[in-house]
Design a protein around this nucleic acid. Structure first.
Lengths: 211, 211
DNA sequence: CGATGAATTGAGAAGCGTCAAAGTACGTGG
DNA sequence: CCACGTACTTTGACGCTTCTCAATTCATCG
């Protein structure tokens, strides 16, 4: 990957707060701006014609979402919890893309890839068979991106969101987390707090190993 | 979407044939070239560390795949059946991206979006509950992209590929197609030949309606 | 006309969704 | 500081869906 340490030409934008559940942009509205997550987690939402709602992806600090690849936004975006984000002009992005600077193009590739990867990962995770493998693959994926205080990982994703993302019922997500706790793969000292006890085993379960 | 009628600055590349199952490029190898599908279907394959294989996406005529967003390819690509494709230099692509032409940038956005959409769609389809909804959503998605002769659609995807893509067993895919046939939603006069009898109903089933 | 791989069908077991109810955390207002 | 309401999580029981394994039929190609 290119230039992962730099935010490129859009460094100076000022971060704004958003409350839990707040909408950042709406599916199929014109791509006038794109968002950069600074702190907290955002979710990408698809609303199908019959009103069914799906969590398509989660975005974490450093990610860009809502890139103007099409005229209209391809999904809606919402804050999962309290969020800090920066809003950039799509026009500026387009200009940067077409600018004669190789550095900008590489930086754009990095941003695009981070967005695309989020969607690709959902497919890979949902491709696993069994709730245990799916939940484990999900944890394996999000863990490194969550804020941590030593061993303690701040795990403040509602299980309903995880369930929608993983195409499981909330009950199954809960039961599966319990199973992982009982086998001491993870520990949850409190709701929203998580400790990785056996990262290696989690990865193996994600790949289909029976517990 | 931008400029969907033009292939942009890479119009003139010569199409090459590939046999069924042939590899176009390999995951994590350097992105030296990217592929444009001219005729036939290609599949994107992910190989996880333990050797598990997943079909992540299908690509159709007009699609580009293997775009150099990262140093190495993010997936492997193979021909599903006999294929015609053009190979373009990644360096040329990067140069186009950084060129001062707005048209090129828009054309690049279009190509990126078509690749990203393929991955996004898998997530959306796998997000549906039940084999019937998943298979129906899949058919709804691929139908318009398959070559057709009047009513007859050439449907030459191995069920094993569909099963891997949908995270179902091949048997379930077979049984579900049979179910759709029995309810006269589709017809398959011969293997690899498909007729859409009730496109509207297929879309409804994809959204969760019971048959 | 056989040989090979793909598709089909059946039967049994396991896993997950659904529904319903109870428990827990957290913020609000008294 | 405590009582309360709300939203989320947890738990249990049951039925249906889907996976697995195995056998058979079907297409395609040499």
């Amino acid at each position: 990957m290119y230039h992962s340490q730099s935010r490129g030409p859009m460094d100076r934008a000022i971060a704004m707060p958003a409350d839990a559940g707040e909408t950042l942009f709406v599916q199929s509205e014109a791509c006038e701006s794109l968002c950069e997550i600074r702190c907290g987690i955002a979710r990408a939402i698809d609303l199908s014609r019959d009103g069914e709602r799906q969590v398509m992806a989660f975005f974490f600090p450093g990610d860009f979402l809502g890139l103007p690849l099409t005229i209209g936004h391809r999904f809606s975006a919402e804050a999962v919890g309290p969020l800090m984000f920066a809003r950039h002009s799509s026009a500026k992005w387009q200009a940067e893309l077409a600018s004669p600077s190789q550095a900008n193009a590489n930086w754009a590739s990095e941003a695009i890839w981070r967005e695309e990867k989020a969607f690709m990962m959902r497919g890979l995770i949902l491709g696993r068979v069994g709730a245990l493998a799916r939940v484990s693959a999900f944890l394996d994926y999000v863990m490194p991106r969550l804020p941590r205080d030593g061993q303690i990982i701040e795990f403040s994703l509602p299980q309903a969101d995880i369930a929608s993302y993983l195409a499981l019922s909330p009950e199954t997500v809960c039961r599966t987390l319990k199973q992982l706790r009982e086998h001491r793969v993870i520990a949850m000292p409190r709701k929203n707090r998580l400790i990785m006890q056996r990262a290696d085993q989690l990865a193996m379960i994600a790949q289909g190993t029976h517990i």
